[in-house]
Amino acid sequence: MYSFDVVRPATVADAIEALAQDEALPLGGGQTLIPTLKQRLSSPSVLVSLSGLAEIQGVCKTDDGKLAIGGGTKHVVVAREAAADYPALAALAGNIGDPAVRNRGTIGGSLANNDPSACYPSAVLASGATVVTNKRQIAADDYFQGMFTTALDEGEIITEVRFPIPEKAAYMKFEQPASRFALTGVFVAKYADGVRVAVTGASEGGVFRWTEAEAALSSKFSPDALAGLTVPADGMISDLHGTGAYRAHLVGVMTKRAVAAAH
């Protein structure tokens, strides 16, 4: 990697100030950024580590009954501390990467990167969660703007994610054999006012909502309700591990399985 400086601020305010420097980049768990640096594909002047920000760590319930997760919270912590209130989310976190990844990677880092095959974006979108930053609150539907693209501005960091807790939910991931990222992952969440279905790994446009399935499942929350529904293969990712047609097929299979597994 090229040379750079590292700062490790203790408060969000200091972090934001540090990020205002030229060619500064925020460093969450580093699960994407560090390999990128090692390949010399990025050359920041300064890395602003967010791992010392105590105020953006941890999991708690808000007064209005939502599950709030600090942006700097590691996957392993979510897997443990969200298990009672939002088991489907905890299970998702507990199955990201391997133990080394889960002990470094953070929810905020994953969402800010918005890898099209990452797990978390599907949970955030299917839950209609709110992404809270140092300066605003962004609805999930507005946050994800395509592969590796989000509503975040330069120098803006995710401080918290607020999840409405569903009646039932489940995440089903079909793993890409090599990387074990989601070749296709589907998060289904049932709320009193309807069902939301979000798909990761499949589309060239990044995480997306499968609205036809949402409508069908909102009227009847059962795998049978999905009979005959398909997503088009156009616009699906096609690579060594799966054609667009295969991914489109998996969307149907994984959705059905998520509905069956939801609890």
């Binding site: 090599a178 990387s179 690579d239 591990h241």
Partner: peptide, 21 residues
């Protein structure tokens, strides 16, 4: 699982553990 794949231009497609299973 394993496959070392090249494209028609001779670029190595499975050049890391992200793609080589």
């Amino acid at each position: 699982l394993e496959s070392c794949a090249y494209d028609e231009n001779g670029q190595l497609l499975s050049a890391s553990y992200m793609d080589y299973a």
